[in-house]
């Protein structure tokens, strides 16, 4: 009885603040702490605010690119790890889990330091080798650095998901394909890839969500760019408005949708397998 009361309290503590944000995003009043009735006015305001739209675009580009890159690189890594045996495998497995656990702030600082060092070393070199008269490119923090940092930390998620799927895959399917005259590449394309695709897609969706929601790492390496979480953070300093609540609610809706889709993708495969079994 006490335990039940306790767990209800924990859930309330977790979800009431989120519920309040959602509720107040529909507030028709101006003040964030004074509910005056339902309205979607603030959603309109948020979506017509050029700063919101600009940072939203950045966030979408970054999340999409990072998710795309980490899906490809993560899948490739998972496939390579699958063939590995012995202590190296254990080491790589450990490193993947560690990289998921590393706090965002550490990745942020580390990536920032690394990128700045590389840029400082490369920029004079580029200027030196660039043809006379043309403006040499200057590498600096921006989209590319955020995408790189996000790819780095979301890639481990894809590796873990895809590896689990490969491990659960029936090895004899690959042998059956080889046995039926398919070359190794065709076996990969026609059997392995379709089998692991749901996991890759789930990895993509999770990576997208993580990248889209990330504040800490972006804050360190975004340079002059503003992502949506950074915009929200900076606008909160001017006070919490229903507009911020509306943005938060939209981000929440998108994130939940993607997370649930990823979950369904992973589960659908299991039920299919169970039905077959």
């Amino acid at each position: 009885m006490v335990m039940r009361f306790y767990s209800i309290a924990v859930y309330l503590f977790l979800y009431v603040p989120i519920g309040i944000i959602v509720l107040f995003s529909f507030n028709s009043g101006r003040n964030a702490s004074d509910f005056r009735g339902l309205s979607i006015e603030w959603y309109g305001k948020a979506l017509s605010n050029p700063f919101v739209l600009e940072s939203l675009t950045s966030s979408l580009i970054i999340a999409f690119s990072a998710a795309f890159l980490s899906s490809i690189m993560g899948t490739t890594a998972a496939l390579a790890l699958q063939r590995m045996r012995g202590p190296m495998k254990t080491m790589f497995d450990g490193l993947i889990y560690v990289s998921i656990m590393i706090p965002g702030i550490v990745i942020g600082i580390a990536t920032l330091v690394a990128l700045v060092t590389v840029f400082d070393a490369l920029n004079p070199l580029l200027a030196a080798v660039w043809p006379e008269g043309a403006e040499p490119p200057r590498l600096s923090l921006g989209y590319v650095s955020v995408i790189a940092a996000h790819t780095l930390f979301t890639m481990s998620l894809v590796i873990v998901l895809v590896r689990a799927r490969i491990a659960g895959m029936d090895r004899s399917l690959i042998e059956a394909s080889q046995d039926l005259y398919a070359t190794p590449w065709r076996t990969f394309r026609q059997v392995t890839l379709p089998q692991i695709f749901p996991a890759i897609l789930a990895g993509f969706l999770l990576s997208f969500t993580f990248s889209f929601d990330d504040f800490i790492i972006s804050f360190f390496v975004a340079g002059a760019n503003t992502t949506l979480p950074i915009y929200v953070f900076s606008s909160i300093r001017r006070g919490i408005t229903p507009e911020v609540n509306a943005i938060g609610t939209m981000v929440l809706a998108v994130s939940l949708t993607l997370l649930i889709s990823a979950q369904l993708l992973l589960r659908k495969n299991d039920t299919k397998k169970a039905a077959k079994g």
Binding site: D170, S172, L173, E175, A176, S177, Q178, D179, L180, Y181, A182, T183, P184, T187, V191, P194, Q195, K272, K273, K276
Partner: peptide, 18 residues
């Protein structure tokens, strides 16, 4: 295997589920 003129019926059938 893909260059051998033999085919196999697997114990668990190994039919492609997709």
């Amino acid at each position: 295997p893909h260059k051998r003129p033999v085919n196999m019926v697997f114990q668990n059938y190994a039919l492609f589920p997709h």
